[in-house]
Nucleic acid binder design. Structure first.
Lengths: 172, 172
DNA sequence: CCTATCATGTAATCCGTTACATGATTAT
DNA sequence: ATAATCATGTAACGGATTACATGATAGG
């Protein structure tokens, strides 16, 4: 008997199903335009994870009779409960900023000032590009919870674009 | 024949060895007070990963003759080269903000305004606590590259503390 | 000397990624 | 019809986490 833990991805799946996504491809499309921006994962997880959740009784699965015969998922009462419980649980894990650019800056004693500037400029550009995406999104998102998170992403990208601009101007 | 890729953790190890860490415990101590704040991992990786790097010829390993007989690592020329190459490589991977609080906000349609406020206040407090840590660090760090990254962390925590303060005040 | 804690690892497991494969639909 | 692409998975592998275990050192 196996009792695997629910991971953040589990809750992403539960959350997207609660929002009306019914198939893995559906989730994939949805994620790629929203939550995937700040919490990314390959599509294979969106085919594997619902299987686990079905085993745990948190999702129901049906197969289409025709065509692709794809798996169609719906939330069970237990699944809704698990999602609600999680939403209300205090969140203890420290958020991590896993940013390879920051890592390089951290260990970049061996770089010349010019090389640091080069790194910083590339990073600034990447953050500005992402910022532009969020700015567009901010105008189109209707779900207020999604909008709030887009705003967080926007503020984050702005902060980091500015940070890297300063680094480029005055390398350590 | 196996040719495993170098992961970010590989470079964290190479970087820390380059900075003078010689044993796994040494790295663990160092990481817990610096890079671990924004890129965390369990200590077991700091015992396993150097082994891989030795196999790849990027680290040399010696055993102490006495006492704990612990493994003492030093950079090889190839290891130094691998670190330098990585530092100069363009960084393509999109940084991810894997923040469970943001996930909950994103999927938090089922929460009442009060519950969102509660979540937001807890998040704000957590970010302010982390902010305080970075502010202390900013005064003590001597390595200018480390200082720059501390500043990034500081700006990030400030941004997010402020963001959650707004969410708490006007929940979506 | 005895105990608590520090320090150093190993083992097992599972999650996440990469790569592969194939069936269905759409476009030409 | 045929090719291209969309959609739906599976398999294999390795990295990361959790849990366990034990030896060394320091403090009383």
């Amino acid at each position: 008997m196996s009792s695997p833990q629910l991971t953040p991805v589990s809750y992403v799946v539960l959350g997207m199903v609660a929002e009306g996504a019914t198939t893995s491809y559906d989730m994939k499309q949805k994620a790629s335009r929203s939550v995937g921006y700040f919490w990314n994962f390959p599509h294979s997880q969106l085919y594997a994870e619902p299987g686990h959740l079905v085993e745990l009784g948190l999702l129901d699965e049906e197969r289409e009779a025709e065509g692709r015969r794809r798996r169609v998922y719906t939330l069970t009462a237990a699944g809704r409960q698990a999602l609600d419980d999680w939403l209300r649980e205090p969140t203890s894990e420290q958020p991590q900023i896993r940013d390879a650019g920051l890592l390089k800056l951290f260990f970049g004693e061996g770089l010349s000032a010019d090389e640091v500037t080069e790194l910083a400029q590339a990073q600034e550009e990447a953050h500005r590009a992402r910022l532009a995406v969020y700015e567009t999104k901010a105008d189109t998102v209707t779900n207020p919870n999604h909008a709030a998170v887009v705003r967080a992403g926007l503020l984050h990208e702005r902060t980091f674009a500015e940070f890297w601009r300063e680094v480029a101007a005055t390398p350590p």
